[in-house]
Each structure stands twice: as structure tokens, then as C-alpha cells.
Simulated assay, not measured.
Amino acid sequence: MPGTVMRAEAAGDVSSCERSIYSLAGRILASMRHQAAARRRLPGSPFNVAEPPPPPIEQFAVRDQVSHDKYGLGRVIAVEQNVAVLIDFGAETRRINAPYTKLVKL
């Protein structure tokens, strides 16, 4: 009787079959939470291309004239080796962290 089933669901009565379905679904979802293992690279695959090494970090010296994409022309006033440079852009002084992607030595 469909009416009886709907009343039982509305009242919160769940059959043992439904409980086992929910339990199975919970176990499946719990097992899916684990991260996948790292993929093995096949030795003969053409997709095994080594990643190119990152370009070397450009070295700056005090008094180097530079151009920044956002701040414009400036002059280096301090250097923290391979960490950051302090640049005077005229109206403001900025510390730019390495890698200096938007900074070009002139």
C-alpha cells in the first residue's frame, strides 16, 4: 500500500533494507575520500617529458634602474640576496619579492 509507505517515511520509520542501503552508501562515500595513488609513469610513453627547470632569478644591484609592470620606473635602493629588492619608484618605495616576474632591469 503506497499510502502506508509514505506515512512510515514521513513518521521517520525506516526499514532495515533502507538502513542497509544508507549504510552501504556511507561506506562507499567514506572509501572515496581517500586520495588516489600517484600515477606510475610508463617508460616508453611520449608524455614523459621532463619539466624544464625554472629560469634563474635575475640578480639586481643597488642603483640598478628597473621597470615594473604596475609601479613603472624605479631605482633599486636595497637588495636582499635571492629574497627581495627594495625599489624607489619616486612617489613610493616598494619591496618586491623574488621571483621578480613583473620587474625588468633596464
Score class of each variant (00 low, 15 high):
Pro2Met: 12
Gly3Ile: 10
Thr4Ala: 15
Met6Arg: 07
Arg7Ile: 08
Arg7Lys: 13
Arg7Met: 13
Glu9Pro: 06
Glu9Ile: 14
Ala10Asp: 15
Ala11Met: 06
Gly12Met: 02
Gly12Trp: 01
Val14Ser: 14
Val14Leu: 11
Cys17Gln: 15
Glu18Asn: 11
Glu18Met: 13
Glu18Thr: 06
Glu18Ala: 11
Arg19His: 07
Ile21Lys: 06
Ile21Met: 08
Ile21Cys: 12
Tyr22Ala: 14
Ser23Thr: 08
Leu24Ala: 15
Leu24Arg: 11
Ala25Phe: 03
Ala25His: 03
Gly26Arg: 10
Ile28Leu: 07
Leu29Arg: 08
Leu29Asn: 15
Ala30Thr: 14
Ala30Gly: 15
Ala30Leu: 14
Ser31Asn: 13
His34Gly: 11
His34Ile: 09
His34Cys: 13
Gln35Asp: 15
Gln35Tyr: 08
Gln35Thr: 09
Ala36Phe: 07
Ala37Gly: 10
Ala38Ile: 07
Ala38Met: 10
Ala38Ser: 08
Arg39Tyr: 09
Arg39Asp: 15
Arg40Glu: 12
Arg40Thr: 10
Arg40Asp: 14
Arg40Lys: 11
Arg40Met: 12
Arg40His: 10
Arg41Cys: 11
Arg41Phe: 08
Arg41Ile: 09
Leu42Ala: 12
Pro43Phe: 03
Pro43Asp: 13
Gly44Val: 01
Pro46Trp: 07
Phe47Ala: 13
Phe47Lys: 12
Phe47Arg: 04
Asn48Asp: 15
Asn48Cys: 12
Asn48Phe: 04
Val49Gly: 10
Pro52Gln: 09
Pro55His: 03
Pro56Met: 07
Ile57Thr: 02
Glu58Asn: 04
Glu58Tyr: 01
Gln59Arg: 09
Gln59Thr: 07
Phe60Lys: 01
Phe60His: 00
Ala61Cys: 07
Ala61Thr: 06
Ala61Val: 10
Val62Ser: 07
Val62Met: 10
Val62Asp: 02
Val62Cys: 09
Asp64Leu: 02
Asp64Gly: 09
Gln65Trp: 01
Gln65His: 13
Val66Ala: 03
Ser67Ala: 09
His68Leu: 03
Lys70Cys: 05
Lys70Pro: 00
Tyr71Phe: 10
Gly72Pro: 03
Leu73Tyr: 05
Gly74Ala: 06
Arg75Leu: 01
Arg75Asn: 05
Val76Phe: 01
Val76Arg: 02
Ala78Ser: 08
Val79Arg: 00
Glu80Trp: 02
Glu80Asn: 12
Glu80Ser: 12
Glu80Thr: 05
Gln81Gly: 13
Gln81Cys: 12
Gln81Ala: 15
Asn82Phe: 10
Asn82Val: 11
Asn82Leu: 11
Val83Ala: 14
Ala84Lys: 02
Ala84Asn: 04
Ala84Tyr: 02
Leu86Glu: 13
Ile87Thr: 04
Asp88Asn: 06
Asp88Ile: 00
Phe89Ser: 00
Gly90Gln: 00
Ala91Gly: 09
Glu92Met: 02
Glu92Thr: 02
Glu92His: 04
Thr93Gln: 03
Thr93Trp: 00
Thr93Gly: 02
Thr93Ile: 04
Arg94Thr: 04
Arg95Trp: 01
Ile96Pro: 00
Asn97Asp: 15
Asn97Pro: 03
Thr101Leu: 06
Thr101Asn: 14
Thr101Lys: 13
Lys102Gly: 11
Leu103Gln: 04
Leu103His: 01
Val104Ser: 10
Lys105Cys: 05
Lys105Ser: 08
